[in-house]
Amino acid sequence: MTVGAPASPEKSRPSIFWPLAAIVIPLVGLLARIELRGSENLPRRGAFVLAPNHHSEIDPLIVAIATWRAGRAPRFLAKESLFRIPVVGWVLKASGMVPVARSRGAAAQALAQAKELASSERGVIVYPEGTLTRDPGLWPMRGKSGAIRLALAGDIPLIPLAQWGTQAVMPRYGKLSLLPLRKPITVLIGEPLDVSDLRGRTDQAAIQEGTERLMAAITALLEELRGEKAPPERWDPTQHGQAETGKL
């Protein structure tokens, strides 16, 4: 966050995120020392789609804390069925999480979600890989279309994010590692992706092009954090006999 910048409306107004942050941030702070870079790239107001890489099951918690520290409320896409569970559904609705209905078409659902985000001036966090990366070196793998569809449907800023270090706290499909305490994790928020030439398009070619640009931007940020180059070819689970859901 820029020094001296006024607090965003989401952090200045009381909300369910205040007590959650008061409980979660100190607890996570025992396990990890989070360094946040590029917070000025997250809009202070208005809708946005934040697209992170994903290589540990603890990633959403770290990204949520980073988003809150950058001045915005962390909201994720959540299965529509979860909204019907007592207590859980109330929390999801109260925190403004975005429901995903499996029965609706991708294009129609993206348009409805984008309209809701734009009208409420809320952001949403979407993992473009859809699951933990299958890449052996933990580099971003082939992306899916959810993030770019949302961004194009609502003319919403699409912002790449890379984080590195969560694998030391909880290895991919592994157990939580408590010691040593305060393991370093770095989160880098990139500049909004330029997809102006794809605005207004919903054809498959535009969706594929936008998705590839997004994955390339996330990979470049991760290369910066890791100080090394990613493999020249992005990992595709279908080419390696791997399922895209469930444990490896």
Rank of each mutant, 00 (worst) to 15 (best):
A7I: 14
A7V: 15
S8Q: 08
S8Y: 07
P9G: 13
P9E: 15
P9F: 05
P9M: 12
E10M: 11
E10L: 11
K11V: 13
K11I: 14
K11Y: 09
K11W: 09
S12K: 13
S12R: 15
R13N: 14
R13V: 12
I16K: 14
W18L: 10
W18V: 12
L20V: 13
L20A: 14
A21R: 08
A21S: 13
A22Y: 03
A22G: 12
V24I: 15
V24C: 14
V24H: 06
I25W: 04
P26H: 03
P26K: 08
L27S: 09
L27E: 08
L27K: 09
V28D: 00
V28H: 02
V28P: 00
G29M: 10
L30A: 14
L31H: 03
L31C: 08
L31F: 13
A32P: 08
A32C: 14
A32Y: 05
R33A: 05
R33S: 09
R33C: 09
R33L: 07
R33V: 03
I34M: 01
I34P: 00
L36V: 15
L36E: 07
L36N: 08
R37K: 13
G38R: 00
S39R: 06
E40Q: 14
E40R: 13
N41A: 09
N41T: 02
N41W: 00
L42G: 00
P43D: 03
P43G: 06
P43A: 06
R44E: 07
R44M: 05
R44W: 01
R44A: 04
R45I: 07
G46Q: 06
A47H: 00
A47N: 00
F48C: 11
F48T: 04
F48S: 08
F48I: 11
F48E: 01
V49H: 02
V49Q: 03
V49Y: 04
L50A: 01
L50E: 00
L50P: 00
L50M: 01
A51N: 00
P52R: 00
P52T: 03
N53Q: 11
N53S: 10
H54L: 02
H54R: 05
H54G: 02
H54C: 03
H54K: 04
H55F: 11
S56T: 07
S56D: 04
E57I: 05
I58D: 11
D59V: 12
D59R: 10
P60H: 09
P60L: 07
L61Y: 02
I62K: 02
V63I: 15
V63K: 07
A64V: 01
I65G: 04
I65H: 02
A66W: 10
T67H: 08
R69Q: 10
R69I: 04
A70C: 13
G71H: 01
G71E: 01
R72D: 06
R72M: 04
A73K: 13
A73D: 11
A73M: 14
P74T: 08
P74W: 00
R75S: 01
R75Y: 00
F76A: 11
F76K: 12
F76G: 12
A78C: 10
A78T: 09
A78V: 12
A78W: 03
K79W: 10
K79M: 10
K79V: 05
E80F: 14
E80M: 15
S81I: 07
S81A: 11
S81H: 09
S81D: 12
L82P: 02
L82Q: 10
L82K: 05
F83H: 13
R84F: 15
I85G: 05
P86H: 11
P86M: 13
V87K: 12
V88G: 06
V88C: 05
